[in-house]
Design a binder for these strands. Structure first.
Lengths: 98, 98
DNA sequence: AAAGTATATCGGGATTTTCCGATATGTCAA
DNA sequence: TTGACATATCGGAAAATCCCGATATACTTT
């Protein structure tokens, strides 16, 4: 875990929001073609909810992934996103030791 | 606590380093005119150790203070800095709930 | 094969961050 | 009260971030 990359990824209102939403997929998203809880949340649903352009959302998700905060998986024509709790826990531990 | 401001303040190598150093003042700083443990660490000592210009260090410390991560106190011709553990704890709690 | 849908990538304008040197302010000591 | 020292503030160049529209890619359906 690169703590600076993680902190940078988190220090943006919109990206932090995405991560919050992904904590409770069922509460925050509804999909007709998958179960957001088990499959993950696809890019389009996030885009729709956050009010940013498709390209920006795609880039932000890439950034969150590179920081290790989410995992993405391509299945068919969709890319599903899930939180990566491991990195979040690591961050908290690092901050506790800080 | 403004979590975005705190995360932004932390997401810089140099500022994170300063906060780390302030965790153990005695281990990281030596002053001839005060006790770094009880009085705090003055700006010049940080400047000397971090290898940034005086103005940059002053600005970074101001930023850390505005984020609530440190407290500064002017005494005579020196400004002493201490970590504000309260904000750090609040941040960790916020991230645990995130 | 063509058209539609979902996502990724590219190029770039606007804004913010990084970091500096110059200068101002405040304090102490002679 | 002058000069030395500690710190704060100002103005700005360079780099990074934010966010977009246009376009490319990939898959699905017809």
């Amino acid at each position: 875990m690169n703590i600076i990359a993680v902190l940078k990824a988190l220090s943006n209102e919109k990206r932090l929001k995405i991560l919050q939403w992904l904590k409770e997929p069922k509460k925050n998203f509804t999909s007709s073609h998958c179960d957001v809880e088990t499959d993950g949340v696809c890019v389009g649903l996030i885009e729709e909810k956050i009010g940013l352009s498709q390209s920006t959302v795609s880039q932000y998700l890439m950034l969150l992934q590179q920081a290790g905060l989410i995992n993405t998986e391509r299945r068919g024509q969709w890319t599903y996103c899930k939180r990566n709790e491991k990195t979040i826990k690591e961050l908290i531990k690092s901050l506790e030791m800080l």
